[in-house]
């Protein structure tokens, strides 16, 4: 059964703990440049937004299609996309084809690397302090997302109710 890392970007605080932990576990070095999960900071309409991004385990993987050395395959146990270090030639075709920009050629190794989900126990999920990352079975993803949405709806309703019940300050429109 395949697993995926679910990213809830609304919760991300941009602390980049996942990058540090990932590079420390997989590359034995604290270097966010060599991490397999990256947090992108974007500024839209003056509002800061952090977008963690890693391999999304596509069903039709573009990286697998374009690889000239047939180095990309699926791990039979976790279902994660793996790049064979022996077969990879470092042509970075996969990084150009990936719609998320998840795999990249590491300049130290000269080989392409991608999220391997740490053999079924992702470090980034463990260290994430704000709960933006979670690890779930691929067929449970929809349920997890729905549950999150419902939870958000409930909290929003409660907040609305609180606003309705609380006394409003004078001189303001009730909207």
């Amino acid at each position: 059964m395949s697993y995926v890392i679910i990213i809830n970007a609304d919760k991300c605080s941009g602390c980049q703990m996942c990058e540090v932990a990932c590079s420390l576990r997989n590359m034995k070095e604290c270097n966010p440049e060599r991490s397999r999960i990256r947090v992108v900071k974007s500024q839209l309409d003056g509002q800061l937004e952090f977008i963690p991004s890693t391999c999304m385990q596509c069903e039709t993987a573009m990286c697998e299609l374009v690889c000239p050395a047939n180095a990309i395959s699926r791990d039979p146990e976790t279902g994660a996309r793996i790049i064979s270090e022996k077969k990879c030639i470092g042509c970075s075709s996969c990084s150009y084809a990936c719609p998320f920009g998840a795999c990249f050629v590491d300049r130290g190794l000269g080989k392409s690397i991608v999220c391997s989900q740490c053999d079924g126990d992702p470090t980034c999920v463990k260290v994430c302090p704000s709960g933006a990352l979670s690890y779930a079975r691929a067929d449970q993803v929809n349920i997890t997302l729905k549950r999150g949405a419902a939870q958000r709806l409930i909290t929003a309703r409660e907040a609305m109710r609180e606003v309705e019940t609380s006394e409003l300050p004078e001189g303001r429109d009730n909207c």
Binding site: R38, S53, S95, Y96
Partner: peptide, 22 residues
């Protein structure tokens, strides 16, 4: 998304497919 850089791909894919939005 082929003709975008890695950084732009990440931002566009979030706003486009909204995989983490309700």
């Amino acid at each position: 998304l082929l003709n975008y850089c890695t950084r732009c791909k990440k931002m566009i894919s979030r706003s486009k497919c909204g995989f983490d939005r309700t």
